[in-house]
Write a protein that binds this DNA or RNA. Structure first.
Lengths: 222, 222
DNA sequence: CTCTCTCTATGCGTGTGCTGATCGTCGAAG
DNA sequence: CTTCGACGATCAGCACACGCATAGAGAGAG
């Protein structure tokens, strides 16, 4: 589990980070609003701990900005003031919880876990072309329920073909997607891998879903 | 929006109910634990406000009972004591939030709205993949009832793999989640920790739940 | 100091990727 | 219809990167 702590008091931030680490929660640190916003956009975070009083950009603004950008990572606000309006306002702006300073590490980690539990991201959907299925999450490939084992390179080639099915892709497009732009070998490699794929996903099932379009490229059809 | 207030001090309960009503939140009242439990089972509630000190049945027990019955209506605990352990304990038992007395109506309604927005999320208290269990609260891991001791780093790696099981995670994703984005060492460390995990959770039980997907990453399966 | 945990560094085995040559096939022009 | 050229398919075999195991150094806590 991974969280971002946005807090300008460096010593406090470091101490909180150590405390969480002892509970198996790894914490990245940002010391001002701008930096925090940047990392929040980048990262693959389970939650954000956000101080309200910050140099650069305050916690409210950061919270509002993230939500406006459709980033729904759970946010826990840290409030220093005694007033209640901070907190109400924060929740209305899209924060998910708040904690009043000073707080104990035990409470913070319990709250963070509770937040992270809710914030599950939806599963990526699988690709289907006819009865051929490809799940990018597990990298499983199957036809009519029968599992097909693919090597990494075979998987890359099939993925791009299925993603854009039934488009015809040129060899160059396939090279770019499956090998990357820094490939410097024999472009004949694409033909070789098309061959591997046909041997695994077409021949055993007596179908012809990987089609050659002479002079143009390849496509996958139902 | 409709909430249930379980609180034995009649005057306080009535005053809270009036305050919420002014914010468009309709409140049912129960004055002891048994009555509260009954109404919580019946009703079509958006949230429950639960005092800890109650005649009949205390707040902890009520909370635990509801969760055991698979009723996941969000619960906000009211704590009167100063100690923090009440609160941590409450959250571990399945409450979703807490508020320390005395509190203001504005804060209570903001919190209730936040809870209702999240909705009832079936909340697995532990992660399970096949017969392998991992409890994020206590950081205990076990298979077939036998306890397995994990170091913090091992725990982090296993947690992210189980949370997203049966997805295949790349080494980079694992590094990001378990080490953080500022890790600058040898990425081979992931392989090392996968090895440690296998030695602890797979080999003693003669299973193979931590799978390598060559060229892609790792997954945990049943 | 000792013990635990984390990480680096090494060597090894195997599956995978790629090359290069040869064989097959399609299509257009005579 | 036949022929020829260009494009695509297939195959064998080698090199190597990937993943695994293990040992040990370094850091930190008790």
């Amino acid at each position: 589990m991974r969280v971002l702590i946005v807090e300008d008091e460096v010593r406090l931030a470091a101490s909180v980070a150590r405390g969480l680490q002892a509970d198996g929660i790894y914490a990245d640190l940002a010391h001002d609003g701008r930096d925090g916003l940047w990392r929040a956009r980048e990262g693959n975070l389970d939650a954000i701990v956000l101080d309200i009083m910050l140099p650069g950009m305050n916690g409210y603004d950061m919270c509002r900005t993230l939500r406006a950008e459709e980033i729904w990572t759970p946010i826990l606000l840290l409030t220093a003031k005694g007033g209640e309006f901070d907190e109400v306002e924060g929740l209305e702006l899209g924060a998910d919880d708040y904690l009043r300073k000073p707080f104990s590490h035990a409470v913070l980690s319990a709250r963070l876990r509770a937040l992270a539990r809710r914030g599950k991201s939806p599963r990526p959907t699988s690709l289907e072309v006819g009865d051929l299925e490809l799940d990018p999450g597990t990298r499983h490939c199957s036809r009519r329920g029968k599992k097909i084992t693919l090597t990494p390179r075979e998987y890359s080639v099939l993925e791009v073909l299925m993603r854009r099915s039934p488009e015809v892709l040129t060899k160059d497009e396939i090279l770019l997607s499956a090998w990357g732009m820094d490939f410097e070998g024999d472009p004949n490699i694409v033909e070789v891998y098309i061959g591997y794929l046909r041997r695994k996903i077409d021949k055993p099932f007596a179908v012809n879903s990987v089609r050659t379009v002479r002079g143009a490229g390849y496509q996958v059809v139902a």
